[in-house]
């Protein structure tokens, strides 16, 4: 039998005594639902999974600034503009909290940033849909941020300490995002026929993509089980989707609008919500980069990074000069 690559490089496939001890300590931490901190030993696969998840989450916050930033100048009042600016600023902040958490796993900020700019990293596919009308700001806040919150609340208890702590901060701030979105729709729902139509149209377009934010159905989500065994994920994709669709089915009544899903009902026997089949082919297609706004979003991010280069250079040069004069 030919020697494997790991044997050739001198790495043994059989774990050493130290590795076994470390693995046992890690397993014990997870077993008693405690937290793993940056300097603890952790399995490589755990580190990799978390780095991918946390950095994708960070990228999503950064790209997620764009659909709403585009509407700041067109928001219908000064108050609405201020609110949107605060929301976009929060998203930048959330991205930064998450990048910090990802960095504690051993990948530098510059490398993470590079992964996004070169298109090697993924971000939430929801941001590859365009925001066409003012009502979309409402639907995004209510449905997209709502789905994000349903996803994120259990992540506050993720087994990796820095991730959980970042999520606690994010969830606290995120709750205003959903409310402000709902109130935009509420204002439109009490307006003219045209405004009502605009609100219903936005709900129609964001309903299905927001349900898909929870990820593929459980039987098609192979990584979920491992993430749940590691206490990163606390509930399955379908469980979270159920919880969310149940909430919005009630909330939409307050708006006097409807969800674009004639099949949606609560099955008393199965004790679960039945919704229409979601278009997973479209989901996969958007993830692959063929959504309505994939290239536009990434190009805008690259442009912003290029345009900020002189600011970063100036700040670095100033810091270097100050450091020099301190020495002198």
């Amino acid at each position: 039998m030919a020697p494997s690559a790991s044997q050739e490089s001198g790495l043994s496939a059989v774990p050493s005594y130290e590795e076994e001890q470390s693995q046992a300590r890690f397993d014990a931490l997870i077993g008693k639902d405690s937290r793993v901190e940056p300097r603890d030993w952790m399995p490589e696969a755990y580190r990799k999974t978390l780095t991918r998840q946390v950095s994708q989450h960070a990228h999503s916050e950064i790209i997620g600034m764009q659909p709403e930033a585009n509407w700041i100048t067109r928001a219908p009042s000064l108050k609405r503009k201020s609110i949107l600016m605060a929301k976009v600023q929060d998203e930048a902040g959330h991205g930064l909290y998450l990048y910090s958490a990802a960095e504690t796993l051993g990948t530098s900020r510059d490398e993470l940033n590079d992964q996004l700019l070169t298109g090697r990293a993924k971000y939430s596919s929801i941001f590859n849909y365009t925001a066409r009308s003012w009502a979309d700001m409402g639907a995004i806040g209510w449905l997209v941020d709502g789905a994000a919150i349903a996803n994120q609340v259990p992540l506050c208890r993720a087994s990796y300490g820095p991730y959980g702590r970042a999520m606690v901060r994010i969830c606290k701030e995120e709750s205003f995002h959903q409310r402000q979105g709902f109130e935009i729709l509420l204002a439109l729902s009490r307006g003219t026929e045209a405004q009502k139509k605009m609100a219903q149209d936005a709900i129609n377009r964001f309903y299905e993509p927001s349900l898909m934010m929870f990820g593929p159905p459980d039987d098609q989500s192979p990584n979920s089980q491992q993430s749940m065994a590691w206490n990163i994920k606390r509930f399955s994709n379908d469980e979270l989707r159920q919880r969310f669709v149940g909430m919005i089915a009630e909330q939409v009544k307050v708006l006097g609008m409807t969800l674009p899903d004639p099949e949606l009902h609560f099955d008393e026997e199965k004790k679960q919500w039945i919704h229409k089949d979601l278009n997973w082919d479209e989901f996969m297609n958007v993830i692959k980069g063929n959504g309505p706004a994939n290239s536009q979003r990434l190009e805008r991010r690259r442009e912003a990074h290029r345009e900020g280069a002189w600011v970063r250079e100036a700040a670095s040069a100033y810091a270097a000069k100050q450091a020099q004069s301190e020495v002198a």
Partner: peptide, 11 residues
Amino acid sequence: AGSLHAPDAQM
């Protein structure tokens, strides 16, 4: 509260 990157203390 958390951490951040900056070129110098003031920033």
